[in-house]
Structure formats: structure tokens, C-alpha cells
Write a protein that binds this DNA or RNA. Structure first.
Lengths: 154, 154
DNA sequence: TGAATTTATATCGCGTGCGATAGAATCGTC
DNA sequence: GACGATTCTATCGCACGCGATATAAATTCA
């Protein structure tokens, strides 16, 4: 007898095809919830979640090229190029070709982009509040996910 | 001393803004990996992951209306209406207004849609293979995610 | 040096995902 | 029965997210 939501009867021949048994669906639907929370919390900053992630990367280390940002975020340049252009249009970053290697586009924070970090400082606490998750659970869950991600990418 | 990837120094004033410390980023990036695996595995069936989810719902219980499918998948009708039209165009489902309540659109499987279930039966094992995750870890992780999702939706 | 290869970014097309909004059908209340 | 509120689905616009593809710069190697 468990107190959590019922899964599905493992004896059921369709057991593995049930939504409720699928880890991936739990992951997918939880991510939808996370995104929804971020939309609310990021409205003030007028950033989407992926845009916020790019800003996190740049706040930690400025002046990366597109590929380096892609690598950190597990995204393709196909996704990031237009996103970075939008951030540039917003005046948060600059994009300029590296003179020594004209293939690379270096992304740097503008003063406004750098300044936004101060206002973003409360975001993690807002999200943690919404998750109502103990620090231990958080660390545990994060590490399980990272192991899973490592396997999936392999 | 941990063997997993390093997080970030909690004494760092920017600790919470680090990508590596954020549970949500682990969730987000793992989901990207899951999606990539599904793209590979679902190529044969010519389905996207959300389309596959709709089929899972209908294989379990046919003849739901749009809202009921939305509710099970945590998606908006805005997302599902066009998706269902694509499934209809593919000949996998039918969409018809309920005579007793013309507001509702009932989605039913075509013979082809129902038959696809047989070919989809191997998908969960393919994905489990890619995740390389023990059954216990899987159940544990799934339940943690569902708890988190419940909090996020509240 | 010159040609083939590789690297870094960009363009295009398509399928989500959702907020804002609209429109039609039904319900509730008088 | 009428009319305002609610329910259900659809349309529109925008931002991802990525596979296929293109292009230019740099590198490799003959």
C-alpha cells in the first residue's frame, strides 16, 4: 500500500505503455510545470527560460562563443543563433566576429545585460519556493537527473 | 568527496545562479536528451514525442474529448488542437463533434491508429535501454518528479 | 601553394507550447 | 423564454528546438 499516485498493474500486458508508469512522461510534464513557473517569475525581466539560461552562462563567464554556450546548455546552434539575436535586439548582449578567427561569434554582455544580474538574483529563491523541495531532495534529484542525462547523451 | 560532477561552492555569492546547482536546468537538459532519444526511436512510427503521448492516452482509453487529453498530458488545447489535426491528417485518429454537446470534439482511433499500438510496444524497452536505469531508480525518480510536478502545479 | 576537409555559424522548414483572444454551444438564473 | 456566465475548441502570434542544408573561414595535407 503506497500513498503516492498509483502507477499501473505490472501484470497488465500494456503496463509499459501506460502514461503513469513512464519516467519520461513524468520528466516531460514536470518540465512543463517548471517552464510555467519560470514564465511567471521571469515576466518582470522580460526573459524566456532559455534566454535566462544564456544569461546565467554569460554572468558566470562572459565573452564565450556560440558553440561554447551551446555546449553548456545542451542546445544546438540552430536554436541559439536566433535566440542570441533576440537578446542582442533587446540590448542585453553584443555579438561580434572574433578578428583572429572570423568563423567565431563572441557573445558579450552589455552594461544593461550585466546589470540585469542584480535583478535576477532573487529568481532561484522564487523558483525554490514554488518547488517546495528540501535542499537534500533537490540535490538528490538533481544528481539522479544528471546521471540519467549522461546515459541519454552517451 | 563526491564522485559525481561538481556542483558549485555554496559560499560563492552567486552559488544559486550557477547552472550546475540548478535542479531545473538538470530537468530541462535531461528532457532535451529524452526528446532526442524519442526522435530516434519514434522515427519508424513517424511520430513526434507529444504525438506518441496522445496515442498512449488513446490506446489506454479511446474516445476522449480534447480537454480530457489535455488534462492527462498537462498541455493546453492551444497545443493539442493542431497536433490532433496532424494526427487526423495522418489517418491515425478521427475528430468529430459530440452530437449531444456540439462544443466537444471526440477523438477516436482509426483502425490504423489502433494497429500502430503493436509496433509501438517495443518503444518503452528501447528508451529504457537508452536510459540504462535500474527499475528501482526509475520508480524512485519518477515518484520524486511527480511530487515536484504536484508542487509546481498547485 | 592549392585543393579537400573540417569548423563555426547561419538559414529554412516544421512541430511544439502557450498567452491572448475569439466564437459557438450549453448552463444557470430569473 | 431570455440573457449573462461558463465551457469547449479554435485561431493567431511568438519563441523555442532541431534536422537538413548552406556558407565562409580556417586547417590539413598533398
Amino acid at each position: 500500500m503506497t500513498t503516492t499516485a498509483p502507477s499501473s498493474d505490472p501484470a497488465d500486458p500494456d503496463h509499459k505503455l501506460r502514461l503513469r508508469t513512464q519516467l519520461c512522461f513524468a520528466l516531460y510534464s514536470t518540465m512543463l510545470g517548471v517552464n510555467k513557473v519560470y514564465r511567471t517569475v521571469l515576466r518582470d525581466l522580460d526573459l524566456t527560460y532559455p534566454q535566462y539560461l544564456v544569461m546565467l552562462v554569460l554572468w558566470e563567464r562572459d565573452g564565450l562563443n556560440v558553440s561554447e554556450i551551446c555546449e553548456q546548455l545542451y542546445l544546438e546552434t540552430t536554436t541559439l543563433t536566433p535566440l542570441l539575436k533576440r537578446l542582442e535586439a533587446r540590448g542585453l548582449v553584443n555579438r561580434q566576429r572574433l578578428p583572429e578567427d572570423e568563423r567565431q561569434v563572441i557573445v558579450t554582455l552589455t552594461a544593461e545585460g550585466a546589470a540585469l544580474k542584480t535583478r535576477a538574483a532573487i529568481i532561484p529563491d522564487c523558483v525554490a519556493e514554488a518547488m517546495k523541495c528540501s535542499e537534500d531532495d533537490l540535490v538528490d534529484l538533481r544528481e539522479q537527473l544528471i546521471r540519467l542525462r549522461t546515459n541519454l547523451i552517451r
